[in-house]
Design a binder for these strands. Structure first.
Lengths: 216, 216
DNA sequence: ACAAGCATACCAACCGTTCGGTATGTTTCA
DNA sequence: TGAAACATACCGAACGGTTGGTATGCTTGT
């Protein structure tokens, strides 16, 4: 019997491979349209391995959302814009960074948890909650810089750092939908540019001294 | 045999009933997770009727997107904000109208074609194209008012009416995702408020005379 | 030796789709 | 006028393939 590759640990165990497969396949086909067999094939494992690590398909969805939260938060935490001194510079650095990673196929740059939320919010509350935790957890990482930028510029607003942080995520999620609809990235990038313009206007409002952060 | 209602067009024919059912069920469960049986049950018809009117499930998806485009464009065309004189007032009236119809369950106020786009953009190009036509067709209806408002206020911008119109749709689509994630409407409404604030800032920019359109 | 990690084989339910059939118009033409 | 010929709308049982899930056994590292 040509039992091929035994247990070689070539880049990750079965669980991690399944999680990576879920990230890729679900972004391309959606959660419901992705079968367990699809995932096993993509991960190069069998169904036995799948149900050894995950009780149900829904449980994999939850785990995939959590895995997404972990990996993306590490990814953003290491991004270079954090080294900027001014909080507002860091905020614009974040948006610019988000623009920069809109590249390639939509399946490569769109958001797993945003996609899953929209699909399963009614049928799989456990997955929805895991996705919500990822989205709002990520948004929350922007709040300190927004709050600091407001304080530094003496901005009194009728909006909160939290609401602006969440708005940035709304724009990004919406931009992804536009990209999926057209197959291109232009409309998505344009929309993020509008977000940049909004931030520029917001933070040069009250009794502005100079004209920070316009253009590139 | 209690064969009930014969061929009377009482309350719509089977095709329309299926289209309405698709609008409701797909928004609640997603396209892939909605079975043909689900749709038939919701519409009160049999599978025979389904496949008499639609060649495949995908064909129903395309028809549902077209039906959505028709019904929503009629819905917006009849909205009261069109009676306002100033183009910018009409633009704000549109946004306020969008806010007003964010009510009830997410399955009732979210966008069918946005949901379907995200789910099937890779697997069902025909549905994706129909959805894209609906989204961008709707966005295009905003362009004349935006262009007129820019002209009336002498605004020279590095953005186009088309890109701003599409940005409004991105914000709305993103707001729907936030609503689905939380189960509530607050974050969605907040995000649309940020959009309102953006428009206010944009149109009071160049050499502003008064301070039109701030707050309520 | 033994449990964790994984593979093979299998199942019942469900999926989209097909198809033979009925009931009710609508058109054609003598 | 009227009846044959055809078209449209709908029904519902059945089919083959796929689905998520299970039962069980082999293979490793410790």
């Amino acid at each position: 019997m040509p039992r091929p590759a035994k247990h070689h640990p070539e880049r990750g165990d079965a669980r991690t491979r399944l999680l990576n497969a879920a990230r890729d396949v679900v972004r391309a086909k959606g959660f419901a349209a992705t079968s367990v067999d699809d995932l096993c094939k993509a991960a190069g494992v069998t169904k036995g391995a799948f149900f050894h690590h995950f009780e149900t398909k829904e449980a994999l969805g939850v785990a995939a959302a959590a895995y997404w939260a972990e990996t993306t938060s590490a990814f953003f935490a290491n991004a270079p814009y954090h080294r900027l001194d001014d909080p507002l510079d860091r905020l614009f650095g974040y948006v610019e960074f988000r623009k920069a990673i809109i590249d390639g196929d939509p399946a490569e740059f769109t958001c797993l948890v945003g996609t899953m939320t929209q699909e399963v919010y009614g049928s799989h509350p456990a997955i929805r909650d895991a996705c919500a935790a990822s989205i709002f957890g990520h948004a929350a990482t922007l709040e300190p810089d927004i709050a600091a930028a407001m304080a530094a510029r003496g901005i009194e607003a009728d909006w909160t750092p939290a609401s602006l942080a969440r708005h940035t995520q709304a724009v990004l999620q919406g931009a992804f939908i536009l990209a999926k609809a057209t197959g291109g990235r232009e409309d998505a990038l344009d929309s993020v540019d509008h977000l940049k313009r909004y931030l520029t206007l917001l933070f040069s409002q009250p009794r502005s001294k100079g004209n920070p952060h316009d253009g590139r």
